[in-house]
Amino acid sequence: MPTLIVCEHCDTVYQRAPLQPGQRARCLRCAAPLYRADLAPPALLALTLAAAVVFLIANVFPIVSLDLQGSSSQSTLWGAIHAAWDSEVGPVAVLVALTAFFFPLLQILLLGAVLLALRRGGLRRSLLVDALHSLRFLRPWSMVEVFLLGALVAVVKMGALAAVQPRPGLYGFAALTLLLTALNSFDLHRLWECLDE
């Protein structure tokens, strides 16, 4: 029954009504957002491609560099993961690798693949179904924005100890945060509906 929508937060049933751009529907019982007028898939695809480029920049360049009495060090995200691994807190390293690197990367790749496939066809439906399920699972565990704030806190913390300088990777993560926030506010249910059309 595609004309009906059920609030995930309280099980109330509604008849779907068309929305103007920028409008959003809220549940009358529990006030949770129901659905909203979202970006069209082509705009979403453009954002996803931009996110892929920015992801590369954010991870290739160091995030911050540090000078202490003549010797200096700098680190990328991957360097931080490696250092945590060497510091005998393996589980923490794995968690950082998943939430700040692999999950955001997978999100970008899967979303790009799904959007391209919806546009041109060619991908098997069962693969699309798996990709959309994975995207739903990944969303809460992808934490680029938290990592960005963590990097800023680390910069200030070290400022007391040594000369700290932000590097291009930090700006990369700032841009990636904006793009992923836009992508993650998109309602994945819309893509399921595109699958049916």
Partner: peptide
């Protein structure tokens, strides 16, 4: 995340 970065840098 803060700890992981500090470990890598310092």
């Amino acid at each position: 995340f803060v700890v992981a970065l500090l470990v890598a840098l310092v």
